[in-house]
Design a protein around this nucleic acid. Structure first.
Length: 754
DNA sequence: ACTCGGAAACTTTTT
DNA sequence: GTTTCCGAGT
């Protein structure tokens, strides 16, 4: 669209006098008003993407005579879907409820449930998550007598997942070598078992929907006729299967996709950046709108982000800008080690709190990998700063919760063998491996499904009569639960009944393990979740409940935005950079900027993976609104051994003038004089006693020369290849043979000269 | 049938 | 260093 027509649109908006448009900048307005061909909105970080999507939908409903039922808006997260629905509702009222605003996966479940029969499933099919899939694949691999060392179930599941993301089903997969032939066999066995279990895994939800739309033309036609507008959020995160799904759905619709190639950080899950990069080739009639004005950060922060991402080659140039002015410089810190880094972060937060009333809730700490959170937790506890770690073990991944859900799944879908086998002997009721194997043998001999073999367990060859009794008791109990469900017991009633009747709850309550107390709490929470579900959806079925639980990772992990006037101090949020995507914070600490950490060691070999690490850095930087801190540690304990890491390549990519370095790489004199580090200051300030690790960094330095043979606690025997520096800074490059060649800072490395 | 101990692994994870 | 999984022992 030309700028001429933009101004024409603006005039029309003025004519209409609609306040919807006055809150938008010209590019945003163009995106909202665009009519006709496919639309690509390239939305830089913080450029008001969600607002544009919501306003566009509101505009469609209000001014273009589009009915809510003719719109489908697809997101990746439930949170994004919820936010979008809420924003549209606040713009145009409750009419918005008839729209389809959902995640890829829940949209697909909705379609699949409606057509389950055609596909050979019942409407209450079970959705398997990664853990379920892995258990199922373990069964398949055992069936095929695969060596679990050479073909771990984990790896097979991942490979199958990749194939499904490429829409290659088990029939069309053409193996070309022996390893692939094994994979093909595993794939077929896995799909057969899924069908027998009346279950689909996450990737099936997408692939099967595509197959459905393509194999049943009248079904595809139905949805193409229904949807006049298809909108897709975070388009850079779509994989091949989702790409085709969107194509199939939008055949008769106006398509609008929003995304930012520079924020594509999920390639490892199958997302392919090509979908957004090649949008204009896929859809030659496409119009592209570029949103570059940022409403989140200071110009300083944006300049840093722009400079770093510009180092990626082959990208569409984009220049984020802000009218907020330069703001404060970025604060940089080079720490001695990860404890010192954490101490600096803690000290800085304390200082900002005292000096300018910063609330902990305004602060976020980012790191590349989860294990980096520990040192921060330690120091925050010690100095008394309130914090929360995002993204640990999730509620629905806890053992007791999964057990309870497995009961519900087995009740709702008797064919679900993975859930059935999970609870068969949980809590312990004397049905061990031996008994299970006997039933399994019966199943394969009679060529009947496992649940049926369980019913006929007395026929199982070589089974212990005591096991038969236990199994009969178990199957009777499950039948009772099913009749409870048939008689109208809701999920919460069923849950309470089974937790009680199975003895699961009483076993936990009787336990002396302190962890089990929390498990009881979690199960109570589970019952509350179920009760809440019944209240919200009185006619919701057990399958509906299980669907919600399977497709909603965690409802409210991130506390609602408090806002600057909130008297609540809030808590510091700690998370990986991946988790931070889509969030924003007044003050951000981006930590661990070291080669091997960020960018991660595993990405070194692959330029495309390094480019993704850089995008990750870009995402991290653009989360900061007002003040960004960046830091790195000279040495860091990894896998129990200290290692020296040079600065991250991303650091020198930030223009020098933007960063104020509080502390740089210490000179030798400073190292000798000891002081100056945040860790040392914190220790001398006597914030606590005894907690600081005295051992680290105080090792006597071994004098080494090239050619010396050494022994290392972890790496074993090695030979010195090169030495550099002296005193506390002395390093040596040592070839450990099969353990690889390492560069070690001798002050820290546990090496002995032989 | 269960428990304990040693070996091995070990990025990121919206569904 | 920490966690997870498998196998041997009780």
């Amino acid at each position: 669209m030309t700028s001429l027509s933009v101004s024409a649109d603006r005039d029309r908006a003025a004519d209409l006098g609609d306040p919807l448009l006055s809150a938008l900048n010209p590019q945003q307005r163009q995106a909202v008003l665009h009519e006709g061909g496919p639309l690509l909105i390239v939305a830089g970080a913080g450029s008001g993407k969600t607002r544009v999507l919501a306003y566009r939908i509101a505009w469609l409903l209000k001014h273009r005579k589009v009915a809510p039922g003719e719109i489908v808006a697809i997101t990746f997260t439930n949170k994004a879907a919820g936010e979008m629905r809420e924003r549209v509702t606040s713009l145009i009222g409750p009419r918005a409820r008839a729209m389809w605003v959902s995640t890829f996966h829940s949209m697909c479940v909705r379609i699949l449930r409606a057509h389950a029969k055609e596909l050979g499933f019942t409407t209450s099919f079970t959705i398997y998550d990664k853990a379920d899939s892995q258990r199922l694949m373990t069964l398949v691999a055992r069936d095929l007598d695969l060596d679990p060392k050479r073909y771990p179930a984990r790896s097979l599941v991942n490979q199958v997942s990749n194939l499904k993301n490429e829409l290659i089903d088990e029939e069309s997969y053409a193996p070309t070598n022996s390893a692939e032939k094994i994979l093909a066999e595993a794939y077929r066995g896995y799909q057969r078992r899924l069908r027998e279990a009346n279950a689909m895994d996450f990737d099936d939800l997408i692939m099967t929907t595509v197959n459905l739309l393509q194999a049943f033309p009248e079904v595809g036609e139905h949805y193409r006729r229904r949807f006049r507008h298809v909108l897709v959020d975070e388009y850079q995160d779509t994989n091949q299967a989702q790409y085709v799904l969107v194509r199939e759905l939008s055949g008769g619709a106006e398509l609008c996709v929003v995304g930012d190639a520079d924020q594509s950080i999920y390639a490892f899950r199958g997302a392919t950046i090509r979908n957004i990069v090649e949008f204009e080739r896929d859809y030659p009639q496409a119009t592209t709108v570029l949103l570059e004005q940022n409403y989140r950060s200071t110009q300083t922060i944006l300049q840093a982000a722009n400079a770093v991402i510009a180092c990626n080659s082959g990208r569409r140039p984009k220049n984020l800008w802000s009218d907020q002015g330069p703001g404060e410089p970025i604060q940089g810190y080079v720490a001695d080690n990860e404890h010192d880094e954490a101490a600096w972060v803690a000290g800085e937060i304390g200082r900002l709190r005292d000096a300018e009333g910063l609330r902990p809730g305004d602060v976020a700490v980012f790191y590349r990998t989860n294990n980096q959170s520990r040192v921060f937790e330690e120091i925050f506890i010690r100095v008394g700063l309130p914090y929360r770690v995002l993204g640990g073990v999730r509620f629905y991944e806890r053992r007791e919760v999964r057990d309870a859900l497995a009961y519900l799944k087995t009740i709702g879908n008797p064919a679900d063998v993975v859930s059935l086998r999970r609870i068969l002997n949980t809590p312990r009721r004397g049905i061990g491996q031996r008994a299970e194997a006997c039933v399994e043998a019966l199943a394969s001999r009679e060529r009947i499904p496992f649940p049926q073999a369980l019913e006929r367990c007395n026929e199982a060859p070589g089974i212990n009569p005591r096991s038969v009794t236990s199994i009969t008791e178990f199957t009777t109990m499950m039948a009772e639960f099913r009749s409870l469900a048939v008689d109208g017991a809701g999920p919460s009633g069923l849950l309470s009944a089974l937790l009680d009747r199975t003895g699961y709850l009483s076993e936990l309550q009787a336990s002396t393990d302190p962890q089990d107390e929390g498990r009881v709490d979690n199960l109570n929470e589970m019952v509350s979740v179920a009760a809440e579900f019944e209240q919200q959806r009185p006619d919701g079925t057990l399958a509906d409940f299980l669907e919600q639980v399977s497709l909603v990772a965690d409802a409210d992990e991130i506390p609602a935005d408090a806002g600057p006037d909130d008297p609540q101090p809030g808590t510091i949020l700690m998370m990986t950079v991946h988790t931070a995507k889509g969030l924003e914070f007044p003050v951000v600490f981006l930590t661990g900027l070291e080669e091997g950490i960020f960018p991660h060691m595993r990405t070194f070999g692959e330029p495309s993976e390094l480019a993704e690490e850089r995008r990750l850095a870009y995402v991290a930087i653009t989360r900061a609104q007002r003040l960004l801190h960046i830091s790195r540690a000279m040495t860091r304990t990894a896998w129990g051994q200290p290692s020296y890491n040079p600065q991250s390549r991303f650091l020198p990519e930030i223009p020098e003038g933007l960063v104020h370095w509080i502390r740089t790489e210490p000179s030798r004199e400073q190292l000798y004089s000891g002081g100056q580090s945040a860790q040392a200051r914190l220790a001398s300030a006597a914030l606590s006693r005894g907690g600081l690790r005295g051992g680290v960094g105080n090792r006597a330095v071994v004098a080494l020369d090239v050619g010396d043979r050494v022994s290392h606690d972890a790496f074993g025997l090695g030979r010195v290849v090169e030495t550099r520096g002296e005193g506390d800074k002395a390093e040596a490059t040592i070839d450990f043979g099969s353990s690889g060649t390492k560069r070690l800072l001798l002050r820290y490395a546990p090496v002995e000269k032989l």
